[in-house]
Write a protein that binds this DNA or RNA. Structure first.
Lengths: 333, 333
DNA sequence: TTGAAAGCGCTAACAC
DNA sequence: GTGTTAGCGCTTTCAA
């Protein structure tokens, strides 16, 4: 309960009549030290609630005990919960390692903030929360030789990637829909500058080809950015006689649902609908929406554990794919 | 373009044939130094893209050049955009001050992470993103004598608070509704353990009293946590003949809207609706929703500027109230 | 097993 | 106006 002003390793040494070196050894566990001395020191440290100064430690061993968490600043609201949960997964790991998380927001292509924390040596490693097709942040970090991992996938070489297996996942859910006898599947997707959307499209197409069917390009509506885009795509899909709308993410699905509802188009009677992602946005929909379920927190947790391995100089595999679940619900019945 | 390994102030001194002190002075601007020498040093620094090591600087002047950003971990998705924008406001200021943001997530009442960054001296100050009625984080920081500010309001003494003027805002919007001749206003609110909700309720009641009317407790539905709670409240309000649903926040309003829609209750013909907050959640509703508009980014920006003043030992006023806008839309026509 | 001393990169009294 | 020196709190050789 000692609330003295900043106890240092030197104060402890004085109080116990040992040297600073000995105290340091007791704390770090490195080097030889007598059982008895160590216990004495550790007990005392506990007692006065001593906390080492991370600045000094950092200066001495050239570490910051921070990891950078990089997220886009232009995120639409629907994607925020994903990043938030990822971050919680990251946070679990950093806590355990006695690290902290430093935030870096990327606005559009502007990676100034990221450069800042890298050049200023404020972090020992970086986790990028999402990947773009032509990702400046990845390119920059690749040249910086600071340890980093990305959540998502990238064609860039030599980048540690942690992702859900979007291709397989989307292929699987599409296959299931086909197996149910649904044929005219319309894909409604977001920006193809996001790697994840490209993967989803790929899985979708693969399932169709594997079934021996032909991919109908007219039923694929990509790069829908605004609500209007999405609504137009829904209209077009229905006009072409789509039996099921396959939405690339929840925001798209959500907007589509609103429109269908407004137009009094009943699900799943008149049209079916499925989403390649499952978030709170769709949580309370009636009927429940068939979708893929991922675990963002696990993604963050895994990514951060990998990052620490890279920081420690361990070898890690370049790409890790985490699992997913297909959740069949009423919307495709 | 020099990409040497970690240039230090000493390397610069050697290269230029001056002392480390002189280099330090050129950089900091403190102390006397010749115009010519300074320019020479500054030019060279620019040239080799030298960045001071914040660890060393921090150790020397006992600063971390980090601020802590404290947010709740149990945030519902609808509130995330608020925190995100606040953080962007904070980020603008930290960038300008050459500071970075360290994240601290509070789970329920568990302020372990906050304690960590404080005890480990990883931050020079803290910004708390929201306030609870009996706020452990605030209590803890108040005893820690680390500079901090809160976004939101608190009864706790001697705490620098930055908030929107929720009482006045809610009072104003309520007054306007009353002025339109609407009399039976039902208030549907969230947890009264959040200070903001108490303020909103207060503004609501004040407007009614000021109009010389009596507050009808039966029409006040508070502490609605789940969607079910909200839907029950909506049912009850309608059962009691409410003319207008006044929702304390967008999540509540959103859930209420879904229910009204499901029950085929037309807005504003059959019932009117207004919200005490305005976010993306409601952005695309038809009809548009009458609501209060705040600027979360400005809140974060302002809070962070204040924090730096506190860190610099300046006197700041304890409470700052930022403005708001009333947006009258179709939902109360 | 322990301690003295140098050093991590920077700042700031105090000389000159 | 500029340099010398002694720290900031911790780690780590190298001796003892």
């Amino acid at each position: 309960m000692n609330t003295q002003k900043n106890q240092t390793i030197g104060d402890i040494a004085d109080a116990l009549g040992v040297s600073k070196t000995t105290v340091s050894r007791a704390i770090s566990g490195k080097g030889r030290i007598g059982e008895e001395t160590r216990n004495k020191i550790l007990t005392y440290i506990e007692e006065i609630n001593y906390k080492p100064n991370p600045m000094a430690k950092g200066l001495a061993d050239q570490k910051t005990y921070n990891v950078g968490w990089v997220i886009p600043g232009d995120t639409i609201a629907a994607d925020l919960p994903f990043f938030q949960r990822c971050m919680m997964g990251v946070s679990e790991v950093t806590m355990a390692e006695n690290y902290d998380i430093l935030i870096s927001i990327i606005y559009d292509d502007n990676i100034a903030q990221l450069k800042r924390i890298v050049e200023n040596k404020k972090v020992d490693g970086v986790i990028i929360g999402r990947t773009l097709v032509d990702d400046k942040a990845i390119k920059y970090l690749n040249e910086s030789n600071l340890p980093f991992v990305v959540i998502g996938s990238t064609p860039e070489k030599k980048v540690i990637q942690i992702d859900n297996d979007h291709i397989s996942a989307c292929k699987e859910i599409t296959s299931i829909l086909l197996m149910k006898g649904i044929r005219k599947l319309a894909l409604i997707g977001g920006s193809t500058s996001h790697v994840v959307n490209i993967s989803r499209q790929k899985g979708f197409e693969e399932a169709i080809k594997e079934k021996g069917l032909k991919v109908d390009k007219d039923l694929m509506f990509l790069n829908n950015e605004t609500d209007d885009d999405i609504e137009r795509a829904v209209d077009a899909a229905i006009g072409l006689g789509a039996e099921c709308l396959v939405c690339m993410d929840d925001r798209i699905c959500y907007t589509a649902l609103l429109k269908l509802h407004r137009d009094n188009i009943i699900i799943p009677d008149r049209i079916k609908i499925a989403s390649f992602y499952n978030s709170d946005l769709l949580a309370n929909n009636q009927p429940a929406i068939t979708a893929l379920k991922y675990d963002p927190k696990e993604l963050g947790n895994f990514a951060c554990r990998k990052l620490f391995k890279v920081i420690d100089g361990e070898d890690v595999e370049e790409r890790s794919l985490l699992s997913y679940e297909v959740m069949l619900k009423g919307s495709t019945q």
